[in-house]
Amino acid sequence: MSVRTEPRSIRILIITVAVAFFALFLVLPLVCVFQNAFSKGLTFYVKTLQHPDALAAMRMTVITALVAVPLNLVFGVAASWLIAKFDFKGKDILLSLIDLPLSVSPVISGLVFILLFGAQGLLGEWLGDRNIQIVFAPPGIILATIFVTFPMVARELIPVMKAQGNEEEEAALTLGASGWRTFWLVTIPNIRWGILYGIILCNARAMGEFGAVSVVSGHIRGLTNTLPLHVEILYNEYQFAAAFAAASVLALLAIVTLVAKTAVEGMMRREH
């Protein structure tokens, strides 16, 4: 028998508040997005998404994620391995640095790249002489996205690796395995679900990032727009149905992410 001391009325009240809150702030907006997206019919919806600017924005978003996620994956695995398995000076500083993108406003994250690579920036002149365009061009978008998604994989892996400790690696070494083989045969398989989880979160953030990307993008249609920026442009031009149609793609991505995340969590639980 479960121990429940609260009277029935209070239980009902608390549950009602929770459900209402959930419906109002999570379900309703999502329903709203899809309702507005289809407000002008399915044909209009398909046509909006097939518009060259929309396709270009989606392509830019996918390319950004394809570059940012693998880079942050490699970085995240390396950093969490270092932090979880070794003791060294400056470990706390490294940890804080990894968290930095989470603690600063995305606008600042974008601005940093303008200050670095913009025409008036620190490296602007040098880049200008060589005709290399970073900000207001795809490289800037990718750099800004890498910056804001920097902690996503590492944050997931550090606690997992810390909890697992070093013993399995030590066992592999005593059994004659080299450091390299130990890493690939023992360390990596042990964190595979953590890696997958990190990739999912990193990808969601990379595809959905608005603030930092907005600052460095320059909003050149068909060239430097990502999907979130495309939504904003359409909305500002009072093309509400089109804006929501584009937004629905992002909302779908969110749902897929959630499902994948839940599935991976289930796998992780089953293994422990």
Binding site: E170, A171, T174, E271
Partner: peptide, 20 residues
Amino acid sequence: QKVSERGVGFVFQHYALFRH
């Protein structure tokens, strides 16, 4: 010699079996 070259059999308190 490195650990991997010593040819020792080591048994840990918490087994340290490869869980996967």
